[in-house]
Design a protein around this nucleic acid. Structure first.
Lengths: 143, 143
DNA sequence: TATTTTAGTTATCAAATGATAAGTGAAGAG
DNA sequence: CTCTTCACTTATCATTTGATAACTAAAATA
């Protein structure tokens, strides 16, 4: 296997992924929040469990002061709730409020419908190929 | 095939792609340019042929005035060159200068070495699985 | 030839983001 | 009981980015 060719394939692949992701998600986000705030909400959504500001800071590559600022704004918009840990009172847990959850549900529903639309004419075999390919790449390359 | 399950798989897959991409490219970009400027240079690099400001504007989802501003900055940094079309003198073609090309080469070399590092312990069979999976997804999902 | 459209520019403004210094209060270590 | 570290906050500032209006010059079209 030519690893250099594989690298080039990877480059154009990731470009496609970015472009398709943009296409499926554009204008799906409520315009009451900024892109960074959306990313934060998304990461809270996907991590089922409540998540701490430090974790958000890490996985979003945001400094703690900036994370804190954005969480405050999200809180003021009533999209998230902060709970302090009963054991370690320095820590906080962030979760979506009902309003935040409703908003993210709506966004995801729209993105999902666009996704389904995109694969509506895909044959059953192709869908299974895609499914397997996603598994392969997730486990062997994008881990 | 459960298309809803496939959607969820797609969501976590794209999240992984973004995260790995970030990991491989972080600090690879020269800090004399901004993220948006890097994206522009990248798109000039990958499109082998010279590219017009309008095309950059389209594929980067940037307005023309902002595209123009950033191209001007890149030009002032001697990273790109503008050539005007001899037939239609409204049009311009943008290409990397020698300096810009050198800079992008260096960045790509670093990213490539990180990529090779990441797959260095991957078996030949797995590499071929990855290669096929990239082809499948590129042609059937991220087209 | 007069009018409209196209490709790109300039200027300006507001908002979003990134970076840094300094502070709070709680937990942990000696 | 002090000192240090940890998790997070507040304040502030510079830079980047996005949006808009008004402009130039060159096609294209009527």
């Amino acid at each position: 296997m030519d690893k250099y060719a594989l690298f080039n394939k990877w480059v154009s692949f990731t470009a496609s992924v970015h472009s398709v992701t943009h296409e499926l998600t554009k204008d799906a986000k409520s315009d009451s929040i900024t892109p960074v705030q959306y990313n934060i909400l998304e990461s809270i959504t996907v991590s089922q469990k409540p998540i701490t500001p430090s974790e958000i800071s890490d996985c979003q590559h945001l400094s703690m002061p900036n994370t804190s600022r954005e969480l405050k704004k999200l809180s003021e918009k009533n999209l998230i709730e902060k709970l302090s840990d009963t054991k370690d009172r320095r820590k906080q847990y962030i979760r979506l409020s009902n309003e935040g959850e409703a908003m993210m549900n709506e966004t995801f529903k729209l993105v999902e419908s666009r996704f389904l639309n995109r694969i509506q004419h895909t044959s059953e075999e192709d869908l299974e190929d895609i499914d397997r390919a996603l598994d392969v790449l997730q486990s062997k390359l994008f881990y």
